[in-house]
Amino acid sequence: MDFSSKFSFKNLKSGSINYIYLLPIIALILFIFLYPITYGIYISFTNFSLQHFYTATLVGFHNYVLLFKNGLIYPIILQTLIWTVGSLVPMVLLGLLVANILNQKGFKFRGLLFTLILLPWAFPAFISLLIWSGMWNTSFGIINQFLSVFGLPRIDWLFKTVPAWTALIITNLWLSFPYYTAFFLSSMQSIPDEFHEAAKVDGANIFQRFSKVTWPAIKGAIAFAGISGFIFTWNNFYPIYILTGGGPGTSTYSLTVFAYNQAFDFYNYSLGAAFSVVSIIILAVMAIFMLKYTKVLEMLT
């Protein structure tokens, strides 16, 4: 054994010195997330609001009691699930479909079409949502103008519960499916070409190649994207906030939108914080369950 073998690949793989590589990300996460979260949890046990801005005191579980006693939180939890699952399933399916189509060998104009498909994601969501809110307008929106061409009645998109959910989910699909397309496509691109070639030589058709080659290689990515997307969508408040503001009534509020409403529109910071904490507990329990079930946790660790 010569000297250089001491620095072999195996040596690189062991030792606590390797923590050095994780130090930047640990520092960043602790600084950006851990302190504010701790402080946010603390706020949820105070009466911090506009009226008690400089004079907030600890009030124990008052905010949590209020939140459950009122009963409004139960339908809002259900609505948050509708929002999250309802948005996520079409996004992932469409993303997967489009990525598969674009990934076919010999697909012409892939670059151009892919770029066009990515555009909605590249556009600032805040801008797109204001544009969509105009498009859904009952009297002047372009969507109802299209419907009337086909002799269909105008729909009060944002003022009735079911149309409002439809509008929210379609808008959110538009905002996010390009992201899933890009995610899945880039993971499919990482599959060595000869795997497909080998399968082809074996006489596998396109569906078999998907199930035998593509799917095993990307199912981890799909699970990871799905779970991350679940968390992102659960917390994503701009579409609801800008399009319906939680209405009609309270029928399209999600937990995050309601918490934001309490904190930033009604300046009731402590109640908003309590809502956020409840929301995160529910989310974390579901996410950990999903991580376990999909074995993404094993992939991550």
Partner: peptide, 24 residues
């Protein structure tokens, strides 16, 4: 454990952490 812990921290939406983050 570290990975799971860091991952869960990122679940908190920006709206929940903005004020404390601002103060720090």
């Amino acid at each position: 454990a570290l990975i799971v812990f860091l991952y869960i921290l990122t679940f908190f939406p920006f709206t929940a952490i903005v004020i404390p983050l601002y103060l720090s």
